[in-house]
Structure formats: C-alpha cells, structure tokens
C-alpha cells in the first residue's frame, strides 16, 4: 500500500500519492474557495499537512480518500474563517461596501440573454454556476461539492463532515435548491 511504502521512506510512493490526489483536492478547493490562486495555495497546504500527519492515518478507521478529503475540508474551514475575519477587518479599515454582498447575483452577473455559440454559452454558464456556488453558505456548499462534484456517497460525506447522514442529505437538498433559486434569477428568460 502506498501509505505504508511512503512511511517506510519511499519517496516515489509519496510522489504517486501527490499525482493521484492533486487533481481531486485542487477541484474541491477551487469549487469551495472560488479562485484558482487560492485553490493552488490550499492544495499545497493540504499536501503539506498530509505529509506531516501521514503516520496518523489509520487504515481501520476508513478509506484513505476519506482521510484526504477530511484534511482538505478542515483546511477549507480554517481558510473560510480566516478570510471572513479578513473581510471584517477590511470593512472596518475601509469604507463599508455592503452592496457587494447585498446585491442579488442577477445584478452582479450581466444578463447574457441567449448567446449564439453553444460552446461559449456552456463556458459562460459554467462560470455563472461557479459564482452562484460561492454564494451558498459554507455548510451547504461543501455538501453539494462533495456529493455532486466529487460523487461521494452519503456515508463518506457524513464521515468527512462529522454529522449524521440525515443532516448531510438535508444540506444537499437545501444547497441544490438554493443554487437553483440563485440561478433562476439570472436565467429567468432562458429557463
């Protein structure tokens, strides 16, 4: 097993772990944090944390993928708290700019109507959905990311978030519904 080889000092095994999981972790971070730059920093932090705590991974307690995702999620929580704190500090330092949060998504995203090119449309749609996702509360956002983007099952998600499966399902429902409502405002004509 990769982890065991890695703990035995096999550097190739560690590189295999990095190769195997970097894409997944980067995507979770990107969809949660919103920007590619943050996602890159966060992904690196995840691997640094993994590298340092690899010996604490217990095979008996669950799949390696769940462990990796838990580390990622915990760092995302820290990141969210920190950036929220930064935002509070920023707004105290500078003139308040509440309109940014208060303005509905439909006003922040220019209405595209019906773009002629299907490819351009799908790319722009992806961008719009991504931005709408950032508007969800972190609890709902992480739930739908793990379920609909990472295809994790409810039991695994419950293990990562450390909440009952029922709570996971409820958050997924609310996250999906909230996202649909946000996008309905943007795509009222198209839908």
């Amino acid at each position: 097993m990769l982890v065991r080889r890695c703990l035995a000092g096999d550097a190739v095994a560690w590189e295999e772990i990095v190769q195997k999981y970097n894409r997944r972790i980067y995507n979770i971070c990107y969809r949660f944090a919103g920007s590619g730059e943050d996602a890159q920093d966060l992904t690196q932090e995840v691997f640094i944390k993994m590298y340092r705590t690899l010996k604490t991974y217990d095979v008996e307690r669950g799949a390696f993928m769940t462990w990796v995702t838990t580390i990622t999620r915990n760092l995302l929580v820290d990141h969210f708290r920190k950036s929220k704190q930064d935002r509070v500090t920023d707004s105290m330092d500078t003139a308040p700019s509440e309109h940014e949060d208060a303005m509905p998504l439909s006003e922040q995203i220019p209405d595209k109507g019906a773009p002629p090119d299907a490819h351009v449309q799908s790319r722009e749609t992806g961008e719009t959905v991504h931005r709408a996702l950032q508007k969800l509360s972190p609890e709902l956002r992480e739930a739908v990311i793990l379920r609909d983007l990472q295809d994790m099952d409810y039991r695994e998600i419950a293990a990562v978030l450390k909440v009952p499966e029922g709570t996971v399902k409820s958050r997924i429902n609310r996250g999906r519904a909230e996202l649909a409502r946000l996008l309905q405002r943007t795509y009222r004509q198209v839908m």
Partner: peptide, 19 residues
C-alpha cells in the same frame, strides 16, 4: 423541483485542470 434543478446545474460543472 428546485433540488432537481440545482443538481442539474452542479452536474453541468466540468472538472478543472490544476496548474
């Protein structure tokens, strides 16, 4: 209806390429 629609939107998101 909304959950169904939201799920559809989320599933439309493509995996992004890491740097």
């Amino acid at each position: 209806a909304e959950a169904k629609e939201g799920r559809h939107w989320l599933k439309s998101l493509q995996e992004v390429e890491p740097p």
